[in-house]
Each structure stands twice: as C-alpha cells, then as structure tokens.
Simulated assay, not measured.
Amino acid sequence: MTTRSSLRVEILTATAALAAAGVGSPQVDAELLAAHLLGVPRTRLGLVPLVDDGWVTRYRELVAGRERRVPLQHLTGVAVLGPVEVEVGPGVFVPRPETESLVEWAVAAVRGVTTPVVVDLCTGSGAIALAVAAARPDARVHAVERSPHALSWARRNVERHRAAGGSPVDLRGGDIADPRLLVDLEGQVDLVTANPPYVPEGTAVEPEVGVHDPAEAVFAGPDGLDVIRPLLSVAAALLRPGGVLAVEHDDTQGESVPALLRSRRVLADVEDHRDLSGRPRFTTARRVRLRDR
C-alpha cells in the first residue's frame, strides 16, 4: 500500500542535511530540488502538501547528491541566466547568478543599435550568448569555445534555443587566440562579452567548483589573468569604433583588470562594475572613435 508523506517535512529534513554538509543555501536548494522533481515552480510548492513513497525515494537520492556537493545544476540538468535556461553537466562551467549583471549591462549597452553584431568569447554553455540573443532577437550573435566538451553543451543549447523559436546563434569551435577564427568579424562588432577563466591558481574554491567545474574554465595562471590578457587584444580587433566590451573577472581583480583595459590606447571609458552581492565582477570599455583621439 502506498503511503503519503508531508512535503514540508521532507524539505525541512533535506534543509538540515544540506546545512550540515556545508551547502551555502540549504533551504533554497532543498526547495529547488523538490520543485524540479515535482515539475512545478518553487513558488508553487505550498500547493503540494503530500508526496508518495516513490517520490520521497527519488528526492532523497537527489539530496544525497547535493550533500556530496554535486552542483545543484548537475542534479537538475539546467542552469538559469537571465531570460534563458541552458542544459549543463560534467565538462562545462555552470553559469552563476553573478553574471546576470554583465548580461543586463550588455543588453542595455546596445539598446540603441539596430541589428547589433555580438561576439561572446569563452562561451562555455553558451549562456551569455543565448541570453543576449533572447533579449535582442534581431542581433547577429556569435559564440566561441575552445573545449570540445563545453562546445558540445553549447551546441545542444543553441539548437534547443532555435527549436524553441529563438534567433540563430553562430557557434564556432576554436581558440580565441587563433587569428583565423574571427577574421571575418574584425572591426564590425558592436558588443563583445566574455566570462573567461580568471581564478588565480592555488585559490581555495568550493567543491562544486574545484571538483565539478572544468579546471580550464576556472583557473588562469598565478594571477588569474593568463586568458584575459590575450582576450583583450582579440576584443579590440573585433570592435568597431564605438563598440563596447564587457569582461567578467575575479572579485580580487577589481583594480588589475581595469588597469589592463586602460593600458590599451584603443579602449576608453573603462569602468568596473559590481555584481548582485556588491563585489567587483566585470569591467567594461568602449573602442575609441577617430574623433576621440
């Protein structure tokens, strides 16, 4: 005979277990796992008072995975960035909520541009590129990724986005340092975005990052700038005069990354921005016009 259990009690028990395991947002994660398994929004959990034994078994398995610090997004299979949901899993960096600030700035920066040309460097899952494409269906969005594993996730998300009626995104596999990869777009781009690897090697990170995110998508040399330095040259070559750039960085790089951008004579209006938690998170700049010189 099937018995029924209280959903509220299951979530409370899961919250306590996740808190004991060191998960940073135990109640939120417990609720999101329950909502995922029920197929309802988190805000609708109160409308489901009871769950059956089979559901409880599956839920406890998911909670156990989260206790082992498997990323929440690996357990649900998706991550949300602004207006889009992307599939994620082993082999690709999981988009973080902090990046939403960069996306919001980027969309606002090209608000007055008709049919903007956009390039997202180090695209990973494709989340930033797809978020911009969702906000600006008229944009010509290009995305670049070097890792074959991440590229497969990005391809899946681009195809999923298009199947749902979204505008096409041009996905290119290769190293951004390859001069042939983006030569057709040089001097034509209105917006360049990038969430590159930027964590200094040796930095202590949460297990969700250190164990489950690809190291090549997280760490970038002793100061975390090994990818950002060459990326700035690529971005400067892509931007048209007046085009803009937004680069995410570590919260310890609120001075070093803006300094790198200011050292480029072709970039102006360099500004650092804080994320949703108030930490230095991304830097923006504009490609100078001839009249600016």
Results as ranks from 00 to 15, higher is better:
Ser263Val: 04
Val247Arg: 01
Ser233Phe: 13
Gly221Ala: 11
His149Gln: 14
Arg264Val: 15
Ala30Asp: 11
Gln253Trp: 09
Thr115Tyr: 03
Leu7His: 12
Gly82Leu: 00
Leu45His: 07
Ala79Glu: 01
Leu130Ile: 07
Thr284His: 10
Glu10Arg: 15
Val9Ser: 15
Glu255Tyr: 14
Glu159Arg: 14
Met1Val: 15
Glu85His: 11
Pro200Trp: 04
Ala17Thr: 14
Leu50Arg: 15
Ile176Pro: 09
Glu87Phe: 00
Ala164Met: 02
Ala20Met: 11
Gly112Asp: 14
Ser167Ala: 13
Leu37Lys: 05
Arg293Val: 15
Leu72Pro: 02
His142Val: 10
Leu245Asp: 06
Leu32Asp: 02
Gly243Thr: 02
Val189Tyr: 00
Arg281Gly: 03
Val92Pro: 02
Arg146Pro: 04
Val169Trp: 03
Val51Ser: 06
Thr99Met: 05
Ala139Thr: 10
Val28Ser: 13
Arg160Met: 03
Leu121Gly: 01
Pro230Ser: 08
Arg172Val: 05
Arg160Ser: 12
Gly112Glu: 13
Ala215Tyr: 04
Gly224Ala: 09
Leu37Ala: 11
Glu206Val: 14
Leu239His: 08
Asp138Met: 04
Val183Thr: 14
Val218Phe: 02
Val247Phe: 05
Leu232Ser: 09
Pro179Ile: 11
Gly22Lys: 11
Asp184Tyr: 09
Val227Gln: 08
Ser233Ala: 14
Pro168Thr: 01
Ala139Tyr: 06
Gly224Glu: 06
Asp120Trp: 02
Val51Gly: 03
Glu159Pro: 04
Leu50Gln: 14
Leu260His: 08
Arg180Asp: 11
Leu225Glu: 10
Val63Gly: 09
Thr283Tyr: 07
Val227Met: 08
Asp250Cys: 08
Thr115Arg: 15
Thr2Met: 13
Arg4Tyr: 15
Glu85Tyr: 05
Arg265Tyr: 12
Arg42Tyr: 05
His249Cys: 04
Asp272Gly: 14
Gly221Gln: 06
Leu50His: 12
Glu159Ile: 10
Asp53Glu: 15
Ala235Asp: 06
Ala177Arg: 15
Gly46Asp: 10
Gly174Leu: 04
Glu216Ile: 14
Leu81Lys: 04
Glu248Trp: 10
Leu245Ser: 06
Val199Cys: 06
Asn195Cys: 03
His273Asp: 03
Gly254Met: 10
Pro200Arg: 01
Val192Asn: 01
Leu151Glu: 02
Val88Ile: 07
Val183Gln: 11
Pro168Tyr: 00
Gly165Glu: 01
Val144Gln: 02
Val199Gly: 03
Asp269Gly: 09
Pro179Thr: 08
Asn157Arg: 01
His273Gln: 08
Val110Met: 00
Val257Tyr: 09
Gly187Tyr: 05
Asp223Ser: 08
Thr76Met: 01
Gly124Glu: 02
Pro197Glu: 04
Arg172Cys: 02
Arg66Pro: 01
Pro200Met: 04
Arg111Gln: 12
Arg160Thr: 11
Leu102Lys: 10
His142Thr: 12
Ala154His: 02
Arg291Gln: 13
Ala129Trp: 04
Arg240Ala: 09
Arg229His: 09
His149Ser: 14
Arg96Tyr: 01
Val40Met: 05
Ile176Lys: 07
